[in-house]
């Protein structure tokens, strides 16, 4: 079965197993390695990308669910995006492995809720685990990106 999708603004055709996780297509097929494998069960959030603007777990999204959709990965998020800027200014990353997923979840939050409070932030990022424990800086960075006082 052939299916089409748009990844970071480029139209793509996929002609493989429609049950294959989107994450493998992005990483192995397109060499977009910014989204990471953490758990394979949609629990940790390291593979978060945007599908039609909403955050999604690429490791549990089969290719057939992405058919006809628009996918954006960390590589497709504008370098000047306020979330990326805030993340750099506040030195959020430690080991960094979860951070691209955190950033994608945060960017999706700000697109739907431009001025989030603590509860909005916690709810939106609840599915993104950081073992280094950068949660306090993540909250601060989301607020900085949103222009709300920390």
């Amino acid at each position: 079965m052939q299916l089409t999708l748009t990844v970071n603004g480029t139209a793509r055709t996929f002609d493989g197993d429609p049950a294959m996780p989107l994450l493998w297509y992005l990483r192995d097929g397109l060499a977009l390695t910014g989204a990471k494998f953490g758990c394979g069960t949609g629990v940790c959030g390291a593979c978060t990308v945007h599908i039609d603007g909403s955050p999604a777990r690429a490791c549990t999204t089969p290719m057939k669910s992405a058919a006809g959709k628009t996918v954006v990965t960390i590589e497709g998020l504008d370098a000047a995006h306020p979330v990326k800027q805030a993340w750099q200014e506040i030195n959020v990353p430690q080991c960094g492995y979860c951070q691209t997923g955190q950033i994608m979840s945060a960017a999706a939050l700000l697109a739907s809720t431009p001025k989030p409070d603590d509860e909005d932030i916690d709810a939106a990022l609840r599915g993104n685990i950081c073992r280094c424990g950068t949660y306090q800086r993540i909250r601060d960075a989301v607020k900085k990106a949103a222009g709300v006082t920390a």
């Binding site: 750099q88 200014e89 959020v92 960094g96 492995y97």
Partner: peptide, 20 residues
Amino acid sequence: SVRRKDGDDKVTGRALYIDD
């Protein structure tokens, strides 16, 4: 609290981990 040397690569997804 200067900018981390590895910050940019980790924020943009350019940092290459072993499976990358």
